[in-house]
């Protein structure tokens, strides 16, 4: 029995107890999705549904998204990044901590199917099983299992994750994942050294590889001249179809009415021209300053593979650099943009 399975048993048990003791009205967790290696959110009031709750390496969605939509007491399963999004929502007065039971999942990282496909050269439908065993992942194809270091298949945002263990929780489903970070970084470094010559194109990723290390894409972009960077984003946003998946999946995008849908004044035309796509994403990121927890949901949900984490991660680093602020760390702290220090950022002003 691996640790995911243990956590899953404990989650079902705890969720059942919470409903039975009438401590909550609603449980939000994950259940198996309709496709292999996917999960979908499970939102239920019924005890009978709880046996469908799962914990596996594919519970990627940020469940904090649903909290402002429901009234009553809610128990929510949350990974490290989700819990920070929840804290961020508490800071913004969108949800009340008293109404929540946070079931913390000490997160060992999420597996990116695209990376598994690249690694094995097989389509996801041809894979029999993907099982995480500590620092290894066992991928079974045609009945044959092969072992890989987990770092090769983890999502970029999980590789860059600072706080895999929830920041705030009522119940923790396992031991905190504190040291896994270092081991992940180590195994990644050795991998990069060993296989440095392997070159793989990222398809539509505009030449940016999501492979080598989580921050290498940012480094590549920062090494460019401003003109090259603008050109890069112009190209990327020419593909955008403005489906708003990135906005709709984001727990920090909680405005009832988004500025893109305003008609008085009309800030943006609905037609997906790159100029307006770029403006939408730039303003969205400015709104997310101090709220984004780098859960990677936007990039994962993008149907045309725009490297959106290159924007969100930059904003994440920027607020840390300028204001020493990390999103969702302290529920009693004021939100970034409502607060100020007497002396800060003066070098940017004449």
């Amino acid at each position: 029995m691996n640790s995911d399975h243990k956590m899953q048993q404990k989650l079902r048990h705890e969720a059942k107890a919470l409903l039975e003791q009438d401590k909550v009205d609603l449980i939000i967790g994950f259940e198996a999705g309709s496709l292999k290696f996917t999960t979908t959110p499970l939102i239920t009031k019924s005890k009978d549904d709880l046996d469908r709750l799962v914990i596996n390496p594919f519970i990627v969605n940020n469940l904090a998204l649903f909290l402002p939509d429901f009234k009553g007491r809610i128990a929510v399963a949350s990974k490290g990044c989700d819990s920070r999004s929840i804290v961020s929502l508490i800071q913004d007065n969108k949800v009340s901590r008293d109404d929540l039971v946070i079931i913390g999942i000490p997160c060992p990282g999420m597996i990116e199917l695209r990376k598994v496909e690249k690694l094995t050269g097989k389509d996801r439908d041809e894979l029999d099983d993907i099982i995480r065993e500590g620092d290894k992942v066992v991928i079974t194809v045609d009945g044959k299992g092969s072992e890989f270091p987990i770092a090769e298949v983890l999502s970029d945002n999980c590789l860059a994750c600072e706080f895999p263990t929830p920041q705030d929780y009522d119940i923790l489903l396992g031991e905190p994942t504190a040291t896994s970070q270092e081991s992940r970084v180590k195994s990644r470094e050795s991998r990069v050294k060993g296989q440095g010559s392997r070159v793989q194109s990222h398809g539509e990723g505009g030449g940016l590889q999501s492979e080598a290390s989580p921050d290498s894409r940012l480094q590549t972009l920062k090494a460019m001249s401003p003109q090259q960077r603008w050109e890069f984003w112009r190209k990327e946003f020419s593909r955008c179809i403005r489906c708003y998946a990135c906005r709709n999946i984001c727990p920090s995008c909680f405005c009832k009415r988004c500025f893109v849908e305003e008609s008085e004044p009309r800030w943006l035309m609905p037609m997906p021209r790159w100029q307006e796509n770029l403006m939408f994403q730039a303003i969205r990121n400015i709104h997310l300053a101090g709220r984004c927890t780098d859960c990677g949901g936007c990039e994962r949900s993008c149907p045309v593979n725009i490297p959106l984490r290159c924007l969100t991660k930059e904003m994440y680093d920027l607020v840390d650099e300028l204001f020493h602020f990390k999103a969702g760390m302290d529920k009693d702290a004021p939100p970034l943009m409502t607060h100020y220090e007497q002396e800060e950022a003066e070098d940017l002003i004449r």
């Binding site: 800060e344 950022a345 940017l348």
Partner: peptide, 28 residues
Amino acid sequence: FRARRRIAITKKFLEYMGMEPERIQASW
């Protein structure tokens, strides 16, 4: 003070996207 935080972030972020920083200016 609030404007200062907003402007700092806007300026730095648009600079990262490739806009010339000279185009966004602030003064007291």
